[in-house]
């Protein structure tokens, strides 16, 4: 039986009276899934991701992470999840290593494991020489890399990422995809939003398309796109809601 890491059931979230950002969205992410979440700007992707990570309260529905309710057991859910927003706002007055130690402390990662992972991922993303510098002196890409290392520090079961490839150099993007695959092979799951359909098509085994807060299509990528390219399917979806 497949191990369900993330279960979203009839998720709804409104901003104000009129604007329904997410409307009755349901999807499942299993261990080993690299699940791409695509849609236009304002379609409800970030709202969904923020609700999954417990940052945003939602009006209706349920979200379960590793079998636990985000509403009932938020801390337990967050303990096995890592979230990287589209524009990570890190503490600029901390050094890179101070930030990673803070994250390690919050997730209770023991010292030896922490050192091993920091060394491994810092070398992988080529920022080991910058960890002693203040984050304020980092470029956007370096901040993104630091946020990724922080997210990987506690070996999460579920990684939730909002546009993770924006700002990364080609090598770092390649390494990140490699990390995704390694994590999934080890039983974790990745759920991320992206506008780069080419990346989604090559990297993901499952895909969900959201439009106007509603899930238009979801499932195995081959089933969703059929004989067409993902781009063609996405453009069709924009034209028509029914698929």
């Amino acid at each position: 039986m497949e191990n369900k890491i993330l279960e979203i059931r009839n998720l709804s979230k409104s901003y104000g009276k009129d604007k329904k950002a997410v409307d009755g969205l349901s999807l499942d992410v299993y261990a080993g899934d690299i699940y791409g979440f695509i849609g236009q700007n304002g379609a409800g992707k970030t709202t969904t991701l923020r609700a999954v990570t417990g940052i945003l309260d939602f009006d209706a529905g349920e979200i379960y992470i590793d079998g636990k309710s985000v509403k009932q057991q938020p801390v337990a859910c967050k303990a096995v999840t890592a979230y990287i927003p589209d524009n990570p706002d890190l503490y600029e007055y901390l050094t890179g290593v101070q930030y990673l130690n803070f994250i390690g402390d919050m997730f209770g990662v023991d010292k030896a494991l922490r050192r091993e992972r920091v060394e491994k991922y810092a070398a992988m993303f080529r920022i080991e020489g910058d960890l002693g510098s203040l984050i304020g002196a980092y470029s956007h890409g370096m901040k993104q890399k630091l946020a990724i290392i922080g997210a990987l520090l506690h070996a999460p079961k579920l990684m939730v990422l909002d546009e993770p490839f924006v700002g990364l150099d080609p090598e770092a993007a390649f390494k990140l995809k490699q990390v995704f695959r390694e994590m999934c092979a080890a039983g974790s799951a990745i759920f991320f939003s992206t506008h780069v359909l080419d990346v989604a098509e090559k990297l993901c085994n499952k895909i969900a398309i959201i439009k106007g807060g509603k899930l238009i299509a979801s499932g195995d990528i081959d089933a969703v796109r059929g004989d067409e390219s993902l781009e063609a399917v996405f453009m069709e979806v924009l034209e028509s809601d029914a698929r």
Partner: peptide
């Protein structure tokens, strides 16, 4: 830092 803090297990 609301998003960053609230995504932590706290």
């Amino acid at each position: 830092d609301y998003d960053a803090v609230m995504s932590l297990p706290v």
